[in-house]
Design a binder for these strands. Structure first.
Lengths: 145, 145
DNA sequence: ATGCTTCCCATTGACGCCCATATGGTCCCA
DNA sequence: TGGGACCATATGGGCGTCAATGGGAAGCAT
C-alpha cells in the first residue's frame, strides 16, 4: 500500500502527543517523507498533513499569479503563514499544537483520515458527521474529490 | 527547512524587545542574512522583514512600473520612505519601534508570520482576522492539482 | 545627569530524546 | 484447534537541553 487509506483514532497523551497510525507511517517511509507539512483544509475543519510536495502544489498556485498582487499576497498568507512543518518523534508521534486544536476542535482524541496522497487530522465526532453527511449527498457545495 | 513557514506569537518585554522565533532565526543564518530590512506590507497592516534581497525585489517591481505612474510613486513612498534597517541582539531579539507599532497596532504581543522568502510582524488578532477573511474569500483560490 | 540602547547573565518552562509498559494481534506448535 | 510465546503498536513518563523571557549593569547621546 503506497497511499493513505482508511482512518484510525488515537488518544492524545498528557504531553499533547499522539501516535500516527503505523500504516500511515509506513507510507511516509515509502515516499521518503521526513518533514511533514501541515495545512488547514480549505473546506473542512481538518488539518491536512503531507510531504513537501503538498506545499509545493499550493506554491505553484501562488506562483501562477502576479507576485505583487493582493491575490498572491492573500494566498501566501494562508499557505505560508498558516502552514506548519512538523517532525515525528522516534516513536512516530506528533505534537498536537494549539494551532491544530483551535482549527479542528480536537480535544482528547484525533482521527487520522487517509486522503490518498496525504492524510488529515480530525476531531473524531466532526469526522463522523462529515462522513455521514457525505454519504447522504448533502455536500453539494463541497469541492470535488 | 530553508523557508519562512508557519506562525508564532511572542511577548514584548518591558524594554520593547521581542524574540524572533528560533526557526526563523535559523533560516536567516542559512541565508547569511545579518541586516534586516523592514517595510510596510502593501495590502495588510503588517511589517515585512527580510534580507537586502527583499528591498531589491520591491525596487525591481517599482522599476518595472511606469516611473511616473501613481502606483510607482506610491510604492516608492512606502519602500524607500517607510523602510528601516534593523539588527537582532545577541539573543535573537528585535526592538519593536513606534514605527512598527503605529502601522500594525501591535501592543503587548507580536505574531511572526512566515511568507516563504521573508516573514512579517502582525498584531495577533489582526492576523487571525486576516487569515479568516482570506479563507472565506477562497473562491478565487481553487484547490490545486 | 537622564533617558535609551547594548551587552551579559539568570530563570523557567516547553520540547526533544530516550526508555519502560501495556495491549492487542499473529504465528507456531502441541 | 486451542493455548501460549512472540511481536508490533500504542501509550506513559523521566530527564536534559534549548528557546523565550526577565532584569541588571555598562556604554552612548541628548
Amino acid at each position: 500500500m503506497n497511499r493513505f487509506l482508511s482512518n484510525a483514532t488515537n488518544r492524545i497523551d498528557a504531553k499533547g502527543r499522539v501516535s500516527v497510525p503505523a500504516l500511515f507511517r509506513s507510507v511516509l517511509v515509502q515516499r521518503g517523507v521526513q518533514e511533514l507539512y501541515c495545512l488547514q483544509d480549505l473546506v473542512f475543519p481538518a488539518i491536512s498533513v503531507g510531504g513537501p510536495d503538498l506545499l509545493e502544489r499550493y506554491e505553484r498556485q501562488i506562483a501562477a499569479a502576479d507576485p505583487f498582487s493582493p491575490e498572491a499576497n492573500r494566498m501566501s498568507l494562508l499557505v505560508h503563514g498558516g502552514g506548519v512543518f512538523m517532525r515525528l518523534d522516534a516513536e512516530g508521534r506528533l505534537m498536537v499544537t494549539d494551532f491544530i486544536r483551535d482549527f479542528t476542535g480536537i480535544g482528547t482524541d484525533v482521527t487520522f483520515v487517509g486522503r490518498s496522497d496525504h492524510f488529515q487530522l480530525w476531531q473524531p465526532q466532526a469526522f463522523h458527521e462529515a462522513q455521514a453527511a457525505a454519504r447522504e449527498g448533502r455536500l453539494s457545495m463541497s469541492r470535488p474529490q
